[in-house]
Design a protein around this nucleic acid. Structure first.
Length: 227
DNA sequence: GTGGTCAAGCAGGTTC
DNA sequence: GAACCTGCTTGACCAC
């Protein structure tokens, strides 16, 4: 992007065929790669013209050319015309309208093309590519975000697993539960357990022999919790 | 020389 | 079926 194109441009352009040299061949648009080969390069682009004056809109000749395009410009075609670089002013205006609207109606496209002295097709392509870039950037951001999420979830998972291991290692005795009425410890037989805990408790009896299933990490946080 | 950027091409899908 | 879109690719240009 480090375009060398001049800044502070006006919407005027030293376009061959528009201003002075009305050159019949002036057109250097997209499809024109054929034959003349480097016509574009000669006139070109963002280079200051030999005289040192720059051309503000390097290539946007709008008229005629449809026939030529078919001929030369295919991706598989013999050659592609030299690359168009939009001027800063063109880019600015395009960006501006992109901010307002990510898609263009045919009328808007036409108007913008006239304003920028580009072909409608070029405006259209610019918007297509711009949308694609926006989407790509967004996808990259989402990707970063998801990576961060993954990182913290992994960390959390590790932490919880450690906790589970610790709890298993502690192999706590059945919790002591006080009667709400007498304030005396209840016998184990009087306790009712939630199904999940019941499984764990039952396992306690045979813990030495049977491996336990992974416990729900959110539940056994407080080994001495009263039920 | 290499990699990034970007205009522009094409194929295939969608919408009206 | 034309117009438009997305997705992918190509090739010119540029900076390093």
């Amino acid at each position: 992007m480090g375009s060398t194109s001049p800044s502070g441009l006006e919407l005027t352009m030293a376009v061959p065929g528009l201003s002075s040299s009305s050159g019949s061949e002036g057109f250097v648009g997209c499809g024109a790669g054929n034959g003349n080969g480097n016509a574009m390069r000669d006139l070109d682009m963002n280079q200051p013209a030999s005289g040192g004056e720059e051309e503000e809109f390097p290539m946007g000749i709008v008229e005629e050319d449809e026939e030529e395009r078919g001929a030369g410009a295919g991706a598989g075609g013999p050659h592609r015309p030299k690359k168009l670089r939009l001027s800063k002013e063109q880019s600015r205006l395009l960006e501006e309208s992109f901010r307002l609207n990510h898609t263009l109606t045919p009328k808007q496209k036409e108007a913008l093309a006239v304003k920028l002295k580009l072909r409608p097709r070029q405006v259209e392509v610019w918007f297509q590519n711009r949308r694609a870039r926006t989407k790509l950037k967004q996808t990259e951001l989402e990707c970063e975000y998801l990576k961060r999420c993954f990182g913290s979830l992994t960390e959390e998972n590790r932490r919880l697993q450690r906790e589970v291991e610790e709890l298993r290692a502690m192999r706590v005795a059945p919790p002591t539960v006080l009667s709400p009425h007498t304030r005396q410890p209840l016998p184990a037989s009087a306790l009712t357990m939630c199904p999940r805990c019941e499984r764990v408790t039952a396992a306690t009896a045979t813990a030495a022999r049977t491996p336990r299933p992974a416990a729900n990490p959110y539940h056994p946080r407080r080994p001495s919790a009263a039920f």
